[in-house]
Nucleic acid binder design. Sequence first.
DNA 1: TGGTAACCGGATGGATCATCCGAATGGATC
DNA 2: GATCCATTCGGATGATCCATCCGGTTACCA
Lengths: 195, 195
Amino acid sequence: MTTTPLRKDAARNWERIIAVARALVDQGTTLQLNDVARRAGLGVGTVYRHFATPEALLEAVATPCLEALTAHGERALADPDPWRALEAFLARTLEAQVTDASLAPVTAAPEDALPRTTELKAALWSTGRVLLDRARAAGAVRPDLAPGDLVPLMCGLAYAVDVHGARDAAARVDTAHRYLATLLEGLRAATPPGP
Amino acid sequence: MTTTPLRKDAARNWERIIAVARALVDQGTTLQLNDVARRAGLGVGTVYRHFATPEALLEAVATPCLEALTAHGERALADPDPWRALEAFLARTLEAQVTDASLAPVTAAPEDALPRTTELKAALWSTGRVLLDRARAAGAVRPDLAPGDLVPLMCGLAYAVDVHGARDAAARVDTAHRYLATLLEGLRAATPPGP
DNA sequence: TGGTAACCGGATGGATCATCCGAATGGATC
DNA sequence: GATCCATTCGGATGATCCATCCGGTTACCA
């Protein structure tokens, strides 16, 4: 992607908007562009030019975290133990999802507002697919689970943690680990139970 | 529950509203009270008097299905095989969640708009808890999974099916069964399976 | 059949949202 | 260092949607 040269004030305002949005997301508030503009001390038009929709702003907020996850995924690929690699990758992804409120909506959304988001999601999913395939080849993975099921299941677990209702990050991460361990145990089962 | 005497026209309009709301829910549209009124050929005030909020209307739409699930749960308690009972109960619940769009938001909501909904949810969860406890006593269930985890996990699986993106009911039910089988295998895994 | 209470439903006020355009600023050129 | 042009700023604007209120009407009961 060619880096578009950005004017000084535009860049400064971009940073402001992102900072305010990040604070709002961490606070649990749903992003409202008008509200973001007011809190950032900027005009509404400024915010709308930078980010056409709340989804675009949310994706911009989530981008750094997605990049970190992608980098971690690439490192997981280097682990010689396929199971440990898959487990670490999924655990890290799930932790991020239940810790950072900006991630869950972005990963679960079928459409992306920013091209960069599409890139990162594709890279992340590809890594997950490779890790799953490697684990399948090495150990025993349920045959009826397609690679396309990995992302929905992860989003589902993150959603389950939300429904569970724990507020502080530590409890959420703990719950996520419990759920993931259960699911992984089911993934690992060689043959599905027959009737 | 004491049946409140309802005037003829009021009852007729109540039915109309429910019917229109049911159609909208099946269509996938989010309920908007103003829109419901227009489609039902009624005034806005009429709809707002019957249902104060869209959530209340949604719960009223979901009530019959919740009652059916509760009844099915009571029957599952009669099954002598604890594992089969739990499996059937969860399968039925999940099928309903992925088939009827009114259920997922109601079950996942932390607060209820209608007292009847609170009753039904409590009964349903109680049944699930008993079934889980029985299964735990009979066979082997992961010890780190609390009874309070059952509902979040079910909601999570239903959400996963949504993220998966299948449109027609058959594919959704199939996906739900795959996910549930995986999770149940994980639930079962702690110690060698009993029977 | 007439009275009363409850219900119906359109009109109203408030809020929020996304867009537009004149004014101002930054960067490039001479 | 001064000028010019493109880009951006930011408040004002129009539109849409939501929830409430009150006069007219209907159903139930004596």
